[in-house]
Design a protein around this nucleic acid. Structure first.
Lengths: 143, 143
DNA sequence: ATAGAACCTAAAGTAACTATAGGTTCAAGC
DNA sequence: GCTTGAACCTATAGTTACTTTAGGTTCTAT
C-alpha cells in the first residue's frame, strides 16, 4: 500500500485545490510552485505542503489578486528569516490594497443596486428603462 | 466651417468615452460598434449615436460586465420589443457576484490585520502562517 | 497482458485589451 | 503653396492568467 496520505498525484492535488491540472503545470512553469519529485515514469508527486501552497494561491486568485501580487504575498511565507517589522509592513500595505479593492467594489455594487431598484422590470420598454438611462450618461465636457 | 457638433473624429470619441483609440478600433473589429463613414482620406467620422453606444459599453465594462454580456445587453437595446426585465436580471446577478467578492476580501483583510497584530518577531513558515491558515479551506472530500 | 484512466510535453487559443511599427492624412503656420 | 507635426491608418505582436488541443507515455486494475 502506497503512502497515499502524504503523497499524491497531480490529479488529486488539482481536486484538493479546486483547479485544473494544466493550471498546476502553468504555476510550476512560471515558478510560483516548486517542481515536485517524480515517479520513475515521470509523474509528479505532491505532499501536504504543496497542497497548502496551491490552496493559498487559488484563494488569492479568487480574490482577484494578480500573480505578481501573490508572488509578493508568498514572500511572507517563503522567507521565514524576514524580520517581523518587514512582514508587518508588507501585510499592512497588502491590507490597504485590499481595502481599496473593497471600496471599489462597494461603489460598483451600489451602482448596480441603484439601477435594479429603479427598474420595475415589467411595464418598461427599452425606451423607458432606468437601467439603460443610468448607463447612458453623457460626459460633462463633451455632451 | 465643419459640422463639428454632429461629426467628430475617433480621438474626440475616445475622449468622450474615456477610452483609447485602439479600444475603439478593437470594438469595431469585433463588431460591437458599427464601422462609421470615413473622410476622403480614410479617417473615421462619428456621430452622437456612436458616442452614446460606446459610452454604454464602457460603463458596462467598468461594472465588470463581459463583452459577451454587453452583446446580450445591446440586443435588448437594439430590439425595441424586449422588456427591460432581462437587463434588470443581469444587473442583479452582477450585484450578487460583486457582493461575494466583497465578502471574500473582507475575510482576507481580517486575516492580514490579524497577522499584523499577531506578529511577535519570529518569521512565519508555510505551516505557521496566519494568512495561509485563514485562507486555507479544507476541501470536503480530500482532506 | 491489456484496456483505459491518468499523466506527460509543447504549442496554440482565449478575453479584452495595449503596445509597437511604419506609413498616411489633416490642419495650422509661414 | 509648402511644410511640419499632430492625429490618424493598418497590421501584427505582446499582455495576463489561464484553457484547449494534439499526440504520446505511464499507471493500475482486471
Amino acid at each position: 500500500m502506497k503512502d497515499t496520505h502524504t503523497h499524491f498525484t497531480i490529479g488529486t492535488l488539482a481536486k484538493k485545490a479546486n483547479c485544473k491540472i494544466e493550471t498546476i503545470h502553468y504555476y510550476e512553469k512560471i515558478g510560483l510552485i516548486p517542481s515536485p519529485p517524480r515517479t520513475e515514469g515521470g509523474h509528479r508527486l505532491y505532499a501536504m505542503t504543496d497542497s497548502k501552497r496551491l490552496n493559498f494561491i487559488r484563494r488569492c486568485r479568487e480574490l482577484d489578486f494578480s500573480i505578481e501580487q501573490i508572488v509578493e504575498l508568498l514572500k511572507f511565507i517563503d522567507e521565514p528569516d524576514h524580520y517581523c517589522g518587514e512582514i508587518k509592513a508588507m501585510a499592512m500595505i497588502q491590507a490597504r490594497e485590499v481595502q481599496k479593492k473593497i471600496d471599489d467594489l462597494e461603489h460598483l455594487k451600489k451602482a448596480l443596486n441603484d439601477m435594479v431598484s429603479q427598474c420595475k422590470g415589467e411595464g418598461f420598454s427599452i425606451d423607458n428603462c432606468p437601467i439603460v438611462d443610468a448607463l447612458y450618461v453623457e460626459p460633462e465636457e463633451f455632451g
